[in-house]
Design a protein around this nucleic acid. Structure first.
Lengths: 201, 201
DNA sequence: TAGATTGTTAATCGATTAACAATC
DNA sequence: TAGATTGTTAATCGATTAACAATC
């Protein structure tokens, strides 16, 4: 399979959102219709779609349901990844309740915190587990991905612990740039940056 | 002031996070130290820093506090923008509680919802206001920016209403690509995309 | 047919990386 | 001095845009 750059992944997920919500019920969509919704060039839309192996129809554009499935296949929505969330504060809660994750192959298995008031409570259908138990749980069911949603002042410490437990990918929702060993990858959910982009527009 | 691309804004905010958290207490930092933390090329870091008008010192690198202030000035952290959040669910709650927003010049003035159970309740120090009141409030205090954190199935409808009230910028946390008039700008917080990038790495 | 739209190549544009003199 | 690091130019790389023949 051809490698797909992050920019293309970004656009493909947005095309998918269009197909799933914006043009729901519509049978065909043209490259220029997608391009207009996202302020893109129509030829780049056509190129992205070609990557997914979908052929269009003249004067009609692309079949919505076919294109939607092709994007799902290309991005691997059905190849489910298992994830733990660390931090059961308001952000961790929002993420575990984000039902759409399942549709995208993101399977949230558990929610960890070290606040005794939260441990044992149920949030979004999952029991909050003591952070101490991360190590034994990872040993049992090999989960390599965590979402880090803890306060900034303990982000590095918790990341170190998760890495010690065997975590390889950290989806980092804290504003802290983490020091990690080479074999560990951190993805920064840089919320503030997109606000700055909005402001500077 | 030189225009700064979104990619550069992305990197500058991450440098700022490093200076604020990761190397707190350290007096100087070299371009390669920043580059290593973020898996970037050191020369691109130096270029970004040059854009902020900061000069480094040989054998020492850049003065941390000076560079931090220069990034803040370049990105306009002190030029405060006022924002309403629409949707007082778990995501809206998480966002209003994200204290760091204030440091970045994001001033959240109010939280709207149309769920009678939520209206009047206090979340993150702000009273939840009925969505009906958006129009009169925007007429009084001219707020052009909203964070959209409502369920997908009413995203377009709520966006239409906000635009009718005079909103010009929508920071969209829903997975719905919105149809908006030309004078309105939508920024997509594409959470699923970054997960896909993580998976495909 | 005429018009609209795709698929794809070529041209342009911008961003990243490499290289290295200047500096302390 | 030698070594490390900046500041900046030139070279490379990749992404976007323009253009247009092919198609229905």
């Amino acid at each position: 399979m051809t490698a797909v750059s992050n920019k293309i992944i970004d656009r493909l997920t947005l095309y998918h959102c269009i197909l799933k919500y914006t043009v729901k019920g519509q049978e065909f969509i043209s490259s220029s219709e997608i391009a207009d919704l996202l302020n893109l060039d129509a030829s780049s839309v056509r190129k992205d779609i070609a990557l997914c192996g979908v052929l269009g129809h003249n004067k009609q554009g692309y079949a919505v349901s076919l294109l939607k499935k092709a994007i799902e296949a290309k991005l691997g929505f059905s190849d489910c990844k298992e994830v733990f969330i660390i931090g059961a504060g308001s952000l961790g809660t929002a993420l575990i309740k984000y039902a759409d994750f399942k549709d995208y192959g993101i399977n949230i298995l558990g929610l960890f915190d070290n606040d005794p008031d939260k441990i044992g409570r149920e949030i979004g259908g999952k029991k909050v587990v003591s952070l101490e138990k991360l190590e034994s749980l990872i040993a049992r069911i090999s989960v390599k991905n965590v979402i880090l949603a803890v306060p900034a002042d303990c982000a590095q410490e918790v990341a170190d612990y998760a890495i010690k437990c065997g975590v390889k990918f950290i989806w980092n929702f804290t504003p802290v740039v983490l020091r990690v060993p080479k074999e560990v990858t951190v993805y920064y959910e840089n919320i503030v940056s997109s606000f700055m982009q909005m402001r500077n527009a």
